[in-house]
């Protein structure tokens, strides 16, 4: 009698603990369930190592964008310019990495050192981030509008710079940069891991990160507490811009070319990913691990649907619903704040 009682209470206890874990790590649990479902549906084939490798490669560029916009959303901002900026960065970096003997190259006959496309790419991204940051912080423009303008500017710049043509025939040494791997681990996954680690350190272990949360949570209180709100906003957009710079550079290296459609719609994917990963649109909430899990969750949904042969048109439709549902629950969860 008493034994069964303790048995029940132990079960209840572990159930309660389990429920607490689930509610605290909803994103992770969702991701794991999706992975298991996909494995079962494909008899384990979908999650064999080379498939996982593909998934990592496909999602890594998006991960950079997600980390950047994730930080911005934590400060209660938004960035719609990601796709265009990454596209421009990819084109700029590609233009410095074309084979010198390629007749249609933007700088035909010139052989640039390998570091140039990388530096130029990151600087281009950082420049647009800085531009957004100054508009939002000092120009007091709503982030939505400021970055909407930047989106168009970057797209225009890309078309002008490339004369609306494909920047192709990239050097193999440059392509190895993103396409190579160390043993079984793709380069790209390593780069993402480094970026994620840096974001984690910033958010968890620096004053800067604490300021981001503070600004997103209560801008007025942040100002009273001696935080330079404007400076911190510029930093967050600049930092995000640098991450887009890396994303664009790696993208051109991975694809071996860049054109006007490169990274098309990436802002949506990135914003959706971090939202699914628990970065709240109400500001002040979000973690690095959430952002990465969000990217992987959307990735596995994309990948799973492709693997199961879902028509790509339907994929788009389903993705839209997933984003709406994620934000719906996010808003419900934090509705009390309003």
């Amino acid at each position: 009698m008493s034994a069964s009682k303790t048995g029940v209470s132990a079960a209840t206890r572990s159930f309660t603990a389990g429920r607490a874990f689930v509610s605290k790590n909803t994103n992770l649990v969702t991701f794991i369930i999706l992975a298991i479902v996909l494995s079962l549906l494909t008899h384990g084939k979908a999650l064999a190592w080379d498939s996982v490798q593909n998934l990592l490669i496909a999602e890594s560029v998006r991960a950079f964008a997600a980390l950047g916009v994730g930080l911005i959303i934590i400060t209660w901002g938004i960035d719609l310019s990601i796709g265009s900026v990454v596209c421009l960065v990819a084109s700029v970096s590609a233009s410095f990495a074309q084979n010198p003997d390629y007749a249609a190259a933007l700088y035909a006959g010139k052989d640039f050192p390998l570091w140039l496309p990388i530096v130029a790419g990151i600087l281009t991204g950082a420049f647009f981030g800085l531009f957004n940051g100054v508009l939002v912080a000092y120009g007091k423009l709503p982030a939505f509008i400021a970055t909407l303008g930047t989106m168009s500017i970057a797209k225009g710049a890309q078309l002008i710079y490339t004369r609306a043509s494909v920047v192709g025939s990239l050097k193999n040494t440059y392509k190895d940069f993103a396409q190579g791997s160390v043993g079984p681990i793709p380069h790209l996954a390593i780069f993402v891991a480094i970026a994620a680690l840096i974001v984690w350190i910033v958010l968890r272990h620096t004053r800067l990160g604490t300021s981001f949360y503070a600004i997103g949570g209560n801008k007025v209180a942040a100002r009273v507490s001696g935080i330079n709100v404007e400076k911190n906003l510029v930093i967050v957009y600049l930092f995000a811009g640098a991450l887009y710079g890396i994303a664009g550079t790696l993208l051109s290296s991975r694809l071996g070319l860049a054109n006007a459609l490169t990274a098309n719609g990436m802002e949506l994917d990135a914003i959706a990913a971090v939202t699914v990963g628990g970065v709240s649109q109400t500001g002040g909430i979000g973690t690095m691990s959430g952002m990465i899990i969000g990217v992987l969750t959307l990735g596995i949904i994309n990948y799973g649907m492709t693997y199961l042969g879902v028509d790509s048109y339907y994929q788009l439709l389903i993705k839209g619903f997933i984003i709406i549902i994620a934000v719906f629950f996010d808003m419900k969860k934090y509705a009390r704040r309003a």
């Binding site: 007025v220 507490s225 935080i227």
Partner: peptide, 19 residues
Amino acid sequence: GSGIFPLLSVSVNTAIPSL
């Protein structure tokens, strides 16, 4: 409105200007 950071912990709320 201008005091607390509702979503941050008691500890961080206390420490913010001294970080």
